[in-house]
Simulated scan of single mutants.
Amino acid sequence: MIVVPVFIELSLEDQAQEFRAYFKRLGAEISEEKSSKGIEDDLHKIIGVCDACFKEPNEIEIESVLNGIVSMLVLIPVERAENLILAFCEKLTKAHGHKLGLVALRVGWLMFQSLDDHSSMRYHVYYHVVQVAKHVDQVQAVFKDVDCLKQQFAACPPSNEQMQKLLRLLHEVLLGSKKSEQAAKVMVELLGTYTAENASQAREDAQRCIMAALADPSTFLLDPLLALKPVRFLEGELIHDLLSVFVSEKLPAYLDFYKNHKEYVHSLGLDHEQNMKKMRLLTFMQLAEGNSEMSFETVQQELQLEEDEVESFIIDVLKTKLVRARMDQAARKVYVSSTMHRTFGRAQWQQLRDLLLSWRNNLQSTQDSMKSVALHIEHSS
Results as ranks from 00 to 15, higher is better:
A227E: 13
R324D: 07
T320I: 04
E13M: 08
A215F: 03
A141R: 10
I8E: 14
H240G: 01
A196V: 10
F284H: 05
A81V: 07
M1C: 10
L105D: 02
Q152F: 08
I315C: 03
Y258M: 09
M163V: 00
V103S: 08
E18A: 12
S380P: 02
A95P: 04
D328S: 05
V125T: 09
W109M: 14
Q300S: 02
F143I: 08
A374P: 10
L110P: 07
H118R: 14
A325S: 03
E59W: 11
L228C: 07
K24T: 09
M276N: 13
L305F: 01
A104M: 05
V317P: 06
R20L: 00
P57R: 02
A215S: 15
L10F: 10
D137Q: 14
K99M: 10
V139A: 07
K94N: 10
L175R: 14
D354W: 10
A184I: 12
V188C: 13
A155S: 08
A154R: 15
L270I: 11
L26F: 07
V65Q: 07
W349T: 13
Q162M: 10
Y254R: 00
M1V: 12
R168A: 05
D241F: 08
Y194P: 04
L356M: 12
H341C: 10
L86H: 12
E61S: 13
E197A: 15
P157H: 02
W109V: 11
V65A: 03
S369G: 12
K179Y: 14
F88H: 01
E63M: 06
A16H: 02
D241L: 11
P252E: 03
N361I: 09
C50Y: 06
D42F: 00
K179A: 14
V130F: 04
M111K: 06
F143S: 01
M276S: 12
A183V: 01
S267L: 09
E263H: 06
R106S: 07
A104Q: 03
T298E: 15
F112E: 09
G236K: 01
Q301V: 11
S337M: 11
E13S: 13
S365F: 14
V4F: 04
I69Y: 00
I377H: 11
D41K: 09
L305A: 06
A155E: 02
Q351T: 08
V299Y: 03
S338I: 06
Q164K: 12
R360P: 00
V3S: 15
K321F: 00
V74S: 03
T320M: 04
H128G: 11
L352W: 12
S35W: 07
T93G: 00
L355S: 15
V310Q: 02
T298S: 12
I314N: 04
A202D: 05
M276Y: 11
K259S: 13
D42C: 01
S11Q: 03
L170Q: 02
R342K: 07
M111Y: 06
Y335K: 10
A212C: 07
F153A: 00
M285K: 02
V188M: 15
L66G: 05
A155Y: 00
K178L: 15
V6R: 15
V74L: 00
L322V: 02
Q274Y: 09
I62W: 04
P224R: 10
W359I: 12
G269F: 03
